[in-house]
């Protein structure tokens, strides 16, 4: 069956929203703590499990569960970062990266050891709105995730542009030493970054838990897309990350029919779900070759 383009774009926007919520946090951490956090996917997983717990065990409605996951994951993520990354903040990019890989292993497998490998769907009531003459439908779930992402971006924008802490954050991202001598408490800034980054990851986790399921690898599965989106947008730039996420989300979904046609023409039997992430990777390599700074031309060359 041919899926109309409008429907593909909606799916793309939904996927883009999940990626965006993860990518904003990833890129903020990259810009301010100066590290690539390979454990970022695990913060999403934590969010998914907090959300599952809130909905299935306590019986909270989904919007409240989203808030619980936002707060809960923010605090947990910040606490973990305080123990692991903060004490070695000056060690440089590579040790921090190795640390995050170790942390990712511990969290992912720790969650698996405790919760088991099962997938737990967060059950919610879903209403479907059909627009048959326009050829697409949206569900309340899809509207919620897109809406949540837009609200998060708006709040983030207001925070970065209208509050002292937000301005301090931008200054620190730009030049940490200069920010420090200007009297900015960069430690406080980093605390805020970890809270924001893990909180947003938590929201992404709950929504992924409703759309797919809460499982020990749900966040890790998103990591590659998140990293690609962040680099596509320009590593370190939250606005770029949002744009990169939506471009990536739409590009990946819209490319599926093309790949299907290619598959039929070449008479191959390819697994398209796997090709999705491969597509993301091809995009990543092309971006790195052509415009490594991404949409906003971030400074990423060695010298």
């Amino acid at each position: 069956m041919e899926i109309p383009l409008a429907q593909e774009v909606i799916f793309g926007l939904v996927i883009g929203s999940y990626i965006a919520l993860g990518a904003i946090g990833f890129t903020l951490v990259y810009g301010l703590v100066n590290m690539i956090n390979f454990a970022h996917g695990e913060f999403i997983t934590i969010g998914a499990f907090v959300g599952y717990f809130a909905v299935a065990e306590i019986g909270l409605p989904l919007p409240v569960a989203v808030l619980v996951a936002l707060g809960g994951t923010a605090v947990v993520g910040w606490g973990i970062a305080r123990i692991t990354f903060e004490p070695m903040n000056d060690a440089g990019a590579v040790p921090l990266l190795l640390m995050s890989i170790g942390l990712g292993l511990v969290l992912r497998n720790g969650i698996r050891a405790i919760a088991g490998p099962d997938r737990r769907n967060i059950r919610t009531d879903v209403a479907t709105y059909r627009f048959d003459d326009l050829g697409f439908f949206v569900t309340s779930q899809q509207l919620l995730i897109i809406g949540l992402t837009l609200v998060s971006v708006l709040v983030l924008h207001l925070f970065l542009s209208r509050t002292m802490l937000g301005i301090a954050m931008r200054a620190t991202a730009d030049n940490e030493d200069l920010a420090l001598v200007s009297g900015i408490d960069t430690r406080r800034v980093r605390n805020a970054v970890w809270l924001a980054a893990s909180g947003l990851a938590g929201v992404a986790g709950v929504m992924l838990g409703t759309a797919q399921a809460a499982s020990p690898t749900v966040g890790f599965g998103q990591l590659l897309l998140i990293i690609t989106a962040a680099i596509l947008g320009g590593a370190g730039s939250p606005y770029g990350a949002v744009a990169g996420s939506y471009i990536l989300g739409v590009a990946v979904t819209v490319s599926v029919p093309f790949l299907q046609r290619l598959e039929e023409t070449l008479a191959l039997n390819l697994e398209l779900t796997a090709l999705n992430s491969t597509m993301a990777f091809v995009i990543l390599i092309v971006v790195l070759l052509v415009r490594p700074g991404g949409l906003v031309s971030a400074e990423v060359r060695t010298s």
Binding site: I36, A93, L224, I231, N269, A274, S277, R301, T302
Partner: peptide, 28 residues
């Protein structure tokens, strides 16, 4: 290799994951 040190880590890790994924799924 012309980019920041940690970009190599991203790309190599991603390639490894994708190759593993392709090996598992492209059964033909």
């Amino acid at each position: 290799l012309r980019l920041r040190d940690d970009f190599l880590a991203i790309v190599t890790l991603a390639v490894a994951e994708i190759i593993h994924g392709l090996l598992e799924t492209q059964s033909d």
